[in-house]
Write a protein that binds this DNA or RNA. Structure first.
Length: 549
RNA sequence: UGGGCUAUGGCCAAGAGGUUAAGGCACCGGACUUUGACUCCGGAAUCGAUGGUUCGAAUCCAUCUAGCCCAGCCA
C-alpha cells in the first residue's frame, strides 16, 4: 500500500515522542480476538496501526489475543489473516498472546512475591457483591491478606490443575474503594479446563485481558498501543500491570473512537448472531460490513483506505453514513473498472428497417476515462434489448431523455433509433417496441444534423450472455422496534435478484469489477457458473434524474 | 446520583488566542455531456449553553446541559 499521510492526534503524539527521543520509531499492533470476522470498524484500527508504524520507521504486528479459548477458533485466525492481507496491510510478525503464557505466569509469580496479587477463593457471586457498585465502594475479600508463601503455593496448585474450574482466581491487590471499577482488585487469572487452539491442554488457567494485554505489548516492545474509547478506564490498570510486573518496555495506551456506520449491524457479536441464525448467507454476505462481505460486494480495498483516511481519527464517537464510502468506491472504480453494457430488465426492440441476418461489430472503448484499458467490439443486429425503464410509451415531459413513441434516441455506440409502435400482451404489458434506425447516424461517423433525445444502452438480443444481478440495500431498516430480535427484522428488499443479459464476451472471472453503463458498478460473485454469470451490485452510479409526477 | 470521555453546518471532520471558521459526504441551483455518469461553476455553520479572562477566544477559566463508556472468572 502506498504511504498515506495521516494527520490526527495519535500522529501528533508519536511525532512528539520521537522528537523527545522517547522512542526512535513507532511499533504498533493489531490485536484481534479470533472469535469472528473483521468488519469495517476494524479497518480503521488496522489501517491506522499500519500507517502509524510505517510512517514512523517502525513496524506493525498482527497479534491474536487468544486468552479465552472458550470462544476462539483457528478458522477465525485464517479469515482474519486473509482480510488483513486483502487490505494490503502487511504485518511484521504474526504473534499470539498464548506465545507469552509462560512469561505471564512468571510475572504473576513476581506480583505475588511483591505482595501485589493474591488468590481468592470467593465465588464469582461473592466477588460481584464485594465489588460494590458505581456509587458504593467495594469491600476487601476475606482472602486478601494471605501470605506470599500461601498465595504462591495456591497459585502454583491452580496451574497444576489441583482445583476445579471457577473455584479460585488470582487477583491484583489494588484498591477496592477506587472510583474506577477496574481498579477494585481485578481478576488476573481464572481456572478453565478448555483445550486451547494453540496450547492444547497445557494450561488450565488463562489470563484475563487486562493482565495479558499490557504484558503482550511490553514484551513485543510496542511503543503505542492503540485501542478504542471504552478502554480509557482500563488505562490505569494497564499502566499498573506494566509497572508492577517490572517490564522493561513501557508501552503507551492511546484510545480513539470506534467507527460506527449508520443503519449497519456493527459489532462482531451481532454479526455473529445474524450468521448463526442464518439471517444472512454467511460472514461474507454482501449486505454485511464485514471485510469479506465488502470484498464479495466488490468494494476495492483502496476505497476503504481513502475512506478511513478521509474520516480522520477522532476522540469523539459518531456514526458515519455509508454514502461516504460509496463515493470513494466510485472514484476508485471509475478508472480501474472496464465499462460494459448490461440489461437487468429487458425490453425487446425490433428495428424494422435493419436487415434480418446482418450483424455489425461496433468499436467501443473499455473506459473512456482510462484509454489504457483498450477497446472491444460489440455486436449489433435487428433485435436488441434495452432497459424497460428506458422506454415510456408517451414522452411524459420535455425532461425525458429516453425512448418514447415518435422520439429518437441514440443507442450508444450504434445508431439513432426512433420508436414507432408497441406490442402488448393480454395484460397490457409492453413486450416489444418496433423502431426504425437511421444508417447515417452511426457512432463515430460525425453525424451532427440533429440531436437525439438522449442516449441509452443496449445488449444484442441474440449475441449475449444470461446473467443474474443481485442488488443490495440496508439489511435492517427498523432498528427502533425492540420487540422483535434484530435478526428477525431483515429488510425483504435488502437482497433483490434480477435476470437479464450482459455482453457476450463476459467471462466468469470472480471478483472482477465492471461499470454497467448508465447503471452502476458490479462485480462477479463466486456463485457464477459457466451458464449463468452472477453479478453483485457494488454501488449504483450517482444520478441527478428525478422522477417528477 | 462515583469515575472516565466527548460536544464545530444534515453526516464525518480540521482547527490548539489574532485575516471573511479547512476539507470530504449529502443536498439545492446552473453549465457541459454519445453514460441524466464524469467534469466545471455557485450555494449553508460563529463553533452545546451561560458567565468570565483578554485589545482580541471555537481555541484559556468557571458553572451548567446533553451524549457515550465502566459494576464479565469477555475482549
Amino acid at each position: 500500500m502506498k504511504v498515506m499521510e495521516m494527520n490526527n492526534f495519535v500522529n501528533t503524539i508519536i511525532e512528539e515522542d520521537i522528537k523527545n527521543k522517547k522512542h526512535d520509531k513507532a511499533i504498533t499492533r493489531f490485536p484481534p480476538e479470533p472469535n469472528g470476522f473483521l468488519h469495517l470498524g476494524h479497518a480503521r484500527a488496522i489501517i491506522t496501526n499500519y500507517f502509524m508504524a510505517k510512517n514512523h520507521g517502525g513496524y506493525f504486528n498482527l497479534r491474536f489475543d487468544d486468552t479465552n479459548p472458550t470462544r476462539e477458533d483457528i478458522s477465525f485466525v485464517n479469515a482474519i489473516k486473509e482480510d488483513i492481507k486483502w487490505l494490503g496491510c502487511d504485518w511484521e510478525n504474526e504473534l499470539y498472546a498464548s506465545d507469552y503464557f509462560d512469561e505471564m505466569y512468571e510475572r504473576a509469580l513476581l506480583l505475588i512475591a511483591r505482595g501485589k496479587a493474591y488468590v481468592d477463593d470467593s465465588t464469582s457471586e461473592q466477588i460481584k457483591v464485594d465489588r460494590g457498585d458505581l456509587t458504593t465502594a467495594g469491600e476487601n475479600s476475606p482472602y486478601r491478606n494471605r501470605s506470599v508463601e500461601e498465595n504462591k503455593a495456591l497459585f502454583t496448585n491452580m496451574k497444576a490443575g489441583n482445583y476445579p474450574d471457577g473455584s479460585k482466581v488470582l487477583r491484583a491487590k489494588i484498591d477496592m474503594a477506587s472510583p474506577n471499577m477496574n481498579m477494585r482488585d481485578p481478576i488476573l487469572y481464572r481456572i478453565q479446563r478448555v483445550t486451547h487452539h494453540r496450547t492444547g491442554d497445557k494450561w488450565c488457567i488463562y489470563p484475563m485481558y487486562d493482565y495479558a494485554h499490557p504484558l503482550e505489548d511490553a514484551i513485543e516492545g510496542i511503543t503505542h498501543s492503540l485501542c478504542s474509547l471504552e478502554f480509557e478506564d482500563h488505562r490505569p490498570l494497564y499502566d499498573w500491570v506494566v509497572k508492577h510486573c517490572e517490564m522493561q518496555n513501557v508501552p503507551r495506551q492511546i484510545e480513539f473512537g470506534k467507527l460506527y456506520i449508520r443503519n449497519a449491524v456493527t459489532g462482531k457479536r451481532y454479526i455473529k448472531q445474524l450468521v448463526d441464525k442464518n439471517a444472512v448467507i454467511g460472514w461474507d454476505d454482501p449486505r454485511l460490513i464485514t471485510l469479506s462481505g465488502l470484498r464479495r460486494k466488490g468494494i476495492p480495498p483502496k476505497a476503504i483506505h481513502e475512506f478511513i483516511n478521509a474520516l480522520g481519527l477522532p476522540k469523539s464517537q459518531g456514526e458515519t453514513d455509508i454514502e461516504m464510502l460509496e463515493q470513494f468506491v466510485r472514484e476508485t472504480l471509475r478508472f480501474d473498472a472496464n465499462r460494459t453494457n448490461a440489461v437487468t430488465e429487458p425490453l425487446l426492440l425490433e428495428i424494422d428497417n435493419y436487415p434480418e441476418d446482418k450483424i455489425e461489430y461496433l468499436d467501443v472503448e473499455n473506459n473512456r476515462d482510462n484509454p489504457d484499458l483498450g477497446s472491444r467490439k460489440i455486436p449489433f443486429s435487428k433485435y436488441v434489448y434495452i432497459e424497460q425503464e428506458d422506454f415510456l410509451e408517451h414522452k411524459p415531459n420535455k425532461k425525458w431523455r429516453r425512448l418514447s413513441l415518435g422520439v429518437e434516441v441514440r443507442l450508444m455506440h450504434a445508431y439513432f433509433v426512433k420508436a414507432n409502435k408497441v406490442i402488448k400482451d393480454d395484460d397490457g404489458n409492453i413486450v416489444k417496441v418496433h423502431c426504425t434506425y437511421d444508417v447515417n447516424t452511426k457512432s463515430g461517423s460525425g453525424f451532427k444534423d440533429r440531436k437525439p433525445n438522449g442516449n441509452i444502452h443496449f445488449v444484442d438480443a441474440s449475441h449475449n450472455k444470461e446473467a443474474e444481478f443481485r442488488l443490495f440495500d440496508t439489511l435492517i431498516t427498523d432498528f427502533e422496534n425492540e420487540d422483535i430480535p434484530f435478526y428477525e427484522k431483515i429488510n425483504p428488499d435488502s437482497f433483490i435478484v434480477k435476470k437479464g443479459y450482459v455482453e457476450e464476451n463476459m467471462v466468469s472471472n470472480v471478483g472482477e469489477s465492471f461499470q454497467f453503463t448508465r447503471n452502476g458498478y458490479y462485480t462477479i460473485d463466486p456463485d457464477s457458473t459457466d451458464d449463468l454469470l452472477v453479478f453483485n451490485r457494488t454501488v449504483s452510479l450517482r444520478s441527478s434524474y428525478k422522477v417528477k409526477k
